[in-house]
Design a protein around this nucleic acid. Sequence first.
DNA 1: GACAACCTGACC
DNA 2: GGTCAGGTTGTC
Length: 269
Amino acid sequence: MPELPEVETIKRTLTPKLVGREIKDVQVRLEKLVRPDPRTFASQLKGAQIKALRRRGKVLLGKLSQDQAFLIHFRLTGQLVFLSPGQPEPAYTHILFHLDQGRLAYADLRQFGRLELWPWSRLDEHPFLSRLGPEPLEISTDAFKGLLQRSRRLKDLLLDQEILAGLGNIYVDESLFCAGLSPTRKANTLSPEQAHRLWLCIRKILSEAIALRGSSVRNYVDGHGQSGRFQERHQVYRRRDKPCPRCGTPIAYTRVAGRGTYFCPRCQG
DNA sequence: GACAACCTGACC
DNA sequence: GGTCAGGTTGTC
């Protein structure tokens, strides 16, 4: 589920609830979701204080006391929701953190997400984090043009987290529509103007999605359990056969890079 | 590159 | 019964 705007929204909604809190106890109900093993995971977290929340690509990071950090990758259906006293757990809650004030539930219908502990000072050595590409909201237009100097299809390239960290299926399709570029266009065939336009579109789409608190297409919710609203602004994603907002041509659906792909066959060349 | 795997559920 | 699903990884 969550791509960059959703993880950013989770981070922002949870920061005031979690920063300064002490973890009193951890219940791991589905052992395969955590690393290292559940006993170590729980005992290391017990007594730790949450100092700050960060985001890198689609990963949520928690800075803890004692040079510890937790990493959460939500994959497709992970949710992290703060519960006030008496508030019921979400369905599919697999891990429950008991804090000095309130509880924090990790729920995950498809069980693909992962929670991990890692020393905060050595995050640059983490096997996944260390390979992530730059943040799309921080990269310069010139550096972005450099990323496009490969003969891969645009959709493959933009989904590759080692090239750019944070875009997923929704925001790649929306960005390519915004820029008027076909998902199968080779990245190194763009003119400088087209490359600049794509850079602008990615920034615009992600910023607007964050402002609207993410896209709730299926079961994404923020740290309060609330849905986002950017799905109402999607131009192509999940709009197969509906008229293109720009030219009225029915939106096409194909498979590119193994993912369902929506685009306007007329506007996106 | 394409495809299966990891899971559960929604929808036709 | 089949298809599809905000992701990543491993195997041809």
